[in-house]
Design a protein around this nucleic acid. Sequence first.
DNA 1: TTTTAAATATCGAATCCCGATATCAATATC
DNA 2: GATATTGATATCGGGATTCGATATTTAAAA
Lengths: 101, 101
Amino acid sequence: MENKVLRKLFLGFIHIHILHHAKEHPIYGVWMVDELKEHGYTISSGTLYPILHSMESDGLLKKKERNVEGKIRKYYTTTDKGNEMLKEARKKAYELFKEIK
Amino acid sequence: MENKVLRKLFLGFIHIHILHHAKEHPIYGVWMVDELKEHGYTISSGTLYPILHSMESDGLLKKKERNVEGKIRKYYTTTDKGNEMLKEARKKAYELFKEIK
DNA sequence: TTTTAAATATCGAATCCCGATATCAATATC
DNA sequence: GATATTGATATCGGGATTCGATATTTAAAA
């Protein structure tokens, strides 16, 4: 494992990153993995998919299956509740950041 | 439990909060719990102490026992490595925050 | 010596994280 | 139509985290 402290910090942001992107446009698992990788973060599918599932069952995301070039993809977008959570989480993230600045 | 997303975000910051305070002055477990509580965050001792131990054994904190009013307290301060980590983690926290702003 | 009290340490159950592996579903190939 | 292919999602088993509850430590007080 790279660095315990930074890794945990990143994972603390993962739900927010998901909400952030899923608000802008529908996202699917592999896209999210690649997007994070481009920014230097790796996340295992064994971590990501259960998070997507739990966020859906918590009512933060809603799923829509789409057939893309003959393959099924599960696209997620934020619900109203998810948008509300995103707003709250951004605020909290700023608070937490300020306190250690 | 209160809120899964916000809770995880907070826990993502916990090492950084510890480093932040331990850099300013020596801290001990109960003080850290109380300090966080004042800012609206609760952390279990069953969570905090193992983190302090692991940060010590990772060389981020160093411990000094002090007798305070007839009781032993274990005060932690940052090491050079801890200060370096704090610097890095603050930078990373800002990056992560920017990306979801 | 016992009791007290502040603080630290540990326990067991539930949950999370991970890489590896398995499964799914729609098309292409036979 | 049966089978193989392929992009993507899903799950597994282990090890680590998180939690509240409980136990232990320590030095002074009784």
